[in-house]
Amino acid sequence: MAADEDRQTMAALAAGDRQAMALLIRRHGPGLRRFLTGVLTTPHEAEDLAQETFLRVWSAASRYDPALASPATWLYRIALRLAIDRNRRTGFRRFLGLEAVPDPQDPQPGAERDLAARQVLARTHQALSTLPGRQRQALLLRAAGGLTTAEIAATLGISPGAVEQLLVRARAALRDITSGELE
């Protein structure tokens, strides 16, 4: 059902309908942000990269082939490629000593709640960073993006069986690392 709606949205996007873009963002924006937050080595860049992903989708919508992949698979594949590229650049920037200083903490009301959220994010990110790349990507595609096993397999270019194995290992490792905090 959602996949059918996505396909209609993609057809509208290819025709240049901006309302379709708003619809796509409403449907996939939250999951995509979460996915990028987990997969990027610099989580604060997730918003920027989510924008970049949707702009790429817009410019390439006419080339989308529904016979090859579901819209969600296509969207997350674009996001994953962008994230891998961004991580590579960030690594090189760190090597050169050019990586930007993290944002200062916000002194506005509500900053305490934000601080708590940031601490949870930092712990989660630290735990995720200990997982092998494929395990982390598969787990985030499922947990953040809500993709099916088949869609994850298509996004990562591996078999559904391999995806299931990655998910089982990733969850077990994460449970050990966080001592059940993420339950």
Partner: peptide, 24 residues
């Protein structure tokens, strides 16, 4: 666990208005 992980990753992810506005 998946839901808890998603929540931890981006607390305000459901508010897509800024993202939508920026992209459009």
């Amino acid at each position: 666990m998946d839901a808890a992980l998603a929540r931890a990753l981006y607390a305000g992810a459901e508010d897509i208005a800024p993202l939508s506005r920026a992209v459009l």
